[in-house]
């Protein structure tokens, strides 16, 4: 399989400088190795500190139990699933997996195909909610941009859907997605959708940055 690689730019939070990065339309072994050998130890350190401070488990990073090797293996070879990764400074900075078989729920796009973001995770050292100052900013946006671009490319007109972990609810509202409320059929997570118009507005906003 040929992997499509695009050049993108992230922000180095400490220096304010732009950092060149690769957006890859696949999750390959190198990314899974980074997850195993870099993300997991970094996250474990954070979890140990949270446990030491007696922080209740419902306030821990909600993706702490995600196993990217398992997620990737489960969908290997299936056309319905696609992966994306962001690589910068020689390390994997973010991962996403999307499903192309889902359809819209929002009134104007009910029953129409969309790109459903199954999983999206940014490397622990880029996540401000984990305590330390993030190293790079823009990784999550880059992955959402990639999912919308895929939706356009597949003829789904930018339509996007996802269930959000509570810690990310505000982010998805901020980028203009419609909050369709808690989904009792999916662990009570809030379900968000982006319409074609919202996708266009998102691209315009991203272009101005």
């Amino acid at each position: 399989m040929t992997v499509d690689v695009s050049k993108i730019y992230l922000l180095d939070v400490a220096t304010g400088a732009s950092v060149e990065a690769e957006l890859r339309d696949a999750i390959e072994q190198a990314q899974l190795d980074d997850w195993q050998t870099k993300w997991r130890p970094a996250l474990l350190t954070v979890l140990q500190e949270l446990a030491r401070r007696g922080v209740p488990i419902d306030q821990w990073p909600q993706s702490w139990h995600w196993d990217w090797t398992q997620k990737t293996t489960r969908v290997q070879g299936l056309l319905a699933f696609r992966g994306f990764s962001v690589v910068a400074l020689g390390e994997t900075q973010g991962l996403a997996q999307v499903d192309l078989t889902k359809t819209g729920r929002e009134a104007n796009q009910r029953g129409k195909p969309l790109v459903y973001v199954d999983y999206l995770e940014v490397a622990p050292w880029n996540r401000p909610e984990l305590g330390a100052a993030p190293r790079l900013r823009g990784v999550g946006s880059a992955l959402i941009t990639a999912a919308i671009a895929l939706s356009e490319d597949e003829g789904f007109k930018g339509r996007l859907g996802l269930h959000s972990l509570p810690q990310a609810d505000d982010y998805y509202r901020k980028i203009g997605m419609t909050d369709l409320g808690q989904d009792v059929a999916y662990q009570n997570l809030r379900y968000f959708e982006m319409t074609s118009e919202q996708a266009r507005a998102f691209f315009e906003q991203e272009g101005e940055r």
């Binding site: 029953g111 597949e154 003829g155 789904f156």
Partner: peptide, 8 residues
């Protein structure tokens, strides 16, 4: 009905 091309 699905608002996608025939190819899609």
């Amino acid at each position: 009905r699905k608002d996608i091309t025939k190819t899609a």
